[in-house]
Amino acid sequence: MSNTSTILGEIEPELADTIVQGRRELFTRYARAGGILASAPLVLALASNQAFGQALPKQIEDTLNFALTLEYLEAAFYEAGNKSRGLIPSKYRTVFRTIGQHETAHVQLLQGVLGNAAVSAPGVDFTAGGQYADVFDNFDTFLTLSQTFEDLGVAAYKGQAGNLMSSGEVLTVALQIHSVEARHASEVRRIGLKLGWDGAFDKPLSKSAVLAAATPFLA
């Protein structure tokens, strides 16, 4: 057994398996030939929200488009929720308005980095085909989906971090989004009268697992 399996096994075997599977998946799908990005133009792009002036390595482009899709979903969810009259109790409105602002900012940031390569916003159905028909009328339903999206976002970014290692700048930005999603998840859980976490270590999810969870909400 390799040293790295050992370190992850210390967290918990299930998590180690998830990570190893996820890596196998990504290393077979991509050649990982991206190399190191020319960093200065990217930093400028991030600073200005202007498109990165040259093609991103395919692996990074795909990963950021995956993240962008999730951010579109979240941004649309809070946009609809925040304008649904009577949905969110007044004492929680600041929280959800702030979360919505962050998600919209994430969309703009990722669109800016991807430039012409950015995917467009997906169609959404937050009722998931009628399963959550009252999502924008019933705060409990809205809260359940909010927690689902936030926890999913945290696990998704974590699962994709390894795909971004060829660019320290892009990886850092992804991590800076990842922890914001975690702050959201914690507070949304708190509003639901829960602890903000499930344990001492958060688990990553593979791209396929994230897509399986998100697909019911994509129209």
Partner: peptide, 15 residues
């Protein structure tokens, strides 16, 4: 693998 392990900790710190 260390990156994912660190990631498993940082989101808990953020929570």
């Amino acid at each position: 693998d260390y990156l994912v392990a660190a990631g498993s900790i940082v989101s808990i710190e953020a929570r």
